[in-house]
């Protein structure tokens, strides 16, 4: 398991790198949360200075970073000036919600992309291949921002789905079944947006790597042996095309998280996205850092998951 160990260390180094980068950027910034306060005539500049020193913002960068690391190790993740609470208490629930959204979106987009990509790769140039490729290239040029508004339009117009937030008003009074239904209906618009946005890239990659594999001699041989097309495609060709697709899985998490941020803000999903946006506006430094760190953490988990899958699927990597 040398390979996985290396990947874990790599991930940790990455997290450290991102946190250092965040603090470097924050040091370059000309203002802080409390400078916005100075604009308020009711707060004296002495108060602002006192607050600054209370939160250690007057200390040099290395000291601030060390304090933050200490706070992360202690499970606090820094302090939010705007909410007056530890960043972790803000992030945990939000992160869970974002994770729910992105996991479902990943799951569904792969569930659609793999069969579709495999199917159209079998007969490149057929009408359904050309239709899918045309469709994906069209979908590719529609940004998430536009997609989500389009879906919202239909959701509101048809009154079929609740819009905004994660739960309806009377959520707490509902039974378990009612709660599930309510959550699922709230999930449909954001998840569909994310699936539609990530679908074109995935379908194209699946198709491209399958087309490559289907040209290989062993597939021709298997075809010659009279193995049925479904078995040939899914049992023979797909595993051979697997490695680049698994790597793509690791990479696609980043795009999905970006899309998720936007969708969360627009649909009012209480994930990390709206929190980060709000913190960016009010320059709530540690919340911004915390949000970026948790998105990086998701990324690292995504690529670790891909690595584990690679190890399971491809025995050569274990040897390396």
């Amino acid at each position: 398991m040398k390979y996985l160990e290396r990947r874990v260390i790599h991930g940790i180094l990455l997290l450290i790198g991102v946190s250092v980068l965040c603090f470097l950027f924050s040091d370059l910034a000309p203002g802080s949360f409390f400078d916005e306060m100075k604009l308020n005539p009711q707060i004296s500049s002495e108060t602002v200075a006192a607050l600054r020193s209370q939160y250690g913002l007057d200390k040099p960068l290395p000291v601030r970073y060390a304090r933050w690391v200490e706070s992360v190790l202690g499970g606090e993740w820094g302090y939010s000036f705007a909410y007056n609470s530890s960043v972790r208490s803000l992030l945990v629930v939000r992160a869970r919600n974002t994770l729910l959204l992105t996991t479902l979106a990943t799951l569904f987009s792969w569930l659609v992309a793999v069969p579709l990509g495999v199917w159209i790769s079998n007969h490149p140039g057929k009408w359904y291949d050309r239709l899918s490729m045309g469709g994906t290239s069209l979908l590719l040029s529609v940004p998430e921002l536009v997609l989500v508004f389009g879906l919202l339009y239909f959701a509101i117009r048809t009154h079929a789905l609740p819009v905004g937030g994660m739960t309806s008003v009377g959520f707490d009074q509902l039974g378990l079944w009612g709660k599930t239904i309510d959550l699922v209906t709230h999930l449909i618009v954001p998840v569909t947006t994310l699936v539609l946005a990530s679908l074109p890239v995935l379908v194209r990659h699946v198709r491209a790597s399958m087309v490559e594999v289907l040209k290989l001699p062993f597939i021709q041989a298997a075809r010659g042996h009279g193995i049925g097309p479904a078995r040939l495609l899914f049992r023979y060709a797909l595993p051979a095309a697997g490695n680049p697709l698994i790597s793509l899985f690791g990479l696609s998490v980043a795009g999905l998280l970006s899309g998720s941020l936007l969708v969360e803000v627009i649909t009012g999903w209480p994930g990390i996205g709206p929190l980060l946006l709000e913190a960016s506006m009010s320059r709530d430094l540690y919340v911004v850092v915390g949000a970026v760190m948790s998105s990086t953490l998701f990324m690292v988990f995504g690529s670790l998951l891909a690595d584990v899958m690679l190890v399971v699927v491809d025995p050569r990597i274990r040897v390396e």
Binding site: A254, S258, L262, V292, T296, V300
Partner: peptide, 12 residues
């Protein structure tokens, strides 16, 4: 490796 929108908002 960073999601670009997170990075963009953070830098902004």
């Amino acid at each position: 490796v960073l999601p670009w929108l997170y990075l963009l908002l953070a830098v902004r």
